[in-house]
């Protein structure tokens, strides 16, 4: 556990860099974490992140399949927006915990 400054705000993060408290998240923080992941954040990214946050805060499990079916983005689009490891990157940018899903 560590403190990190994003967008002028101090937030606590895990060793892998995930926010420990989703309520500390702001859009500006998301943009800075995205930059660390090599992503220039756009409205499309925010649309996906909003969906992810909404679903997670409701306590629903997050899978690539559920995001692909969300109507916000299809699976291929999701991989294109967050290249490499989309679920991990998107979760980190969305300020939620590291995903624990196997699918």
């Amino acid at each position: 556990m560590a403190e990190k400054i994003y967008a002028g705000k101090s937030v606590s993060v895990t060793d892998d860099g995930y926010l420990t408290d989703a309520s500390q998240w702001t859009k500006e923080i998301a943009a800075e974490i995205a930059k660390e992941e090599g992503i220039d954040i756009t409205d499309k990214h925010y649309a996906v992140i909003d969906f992810i946050r909404e679903k997670t805060l409701k306590g629903e499990a997050l899978t690539i399949r559920s995001i692909g079916k969300s109507g916000v983005v299809d699976t291929k689009g999701f991989y294109d927006l967050f290249p490499g490891a989309p679920l991990k990157k998107a979760s980190r940018i969305a300020g939620i915990a590291k995903p624990s899903s196997c699918v």
Partner: peptide, 18 residues
């Protein structure tokens, strides 16, 4: 129930990711 898709959809997921 665990959001594991049927085979055809699973193949689609895998290929969509490269």
């Amino acid at each position: 129930k665990l959001d594991i898709p049927p085979v055809d959809e699973f193949l689609e997921l895998i290929t969509a990711g490269g």
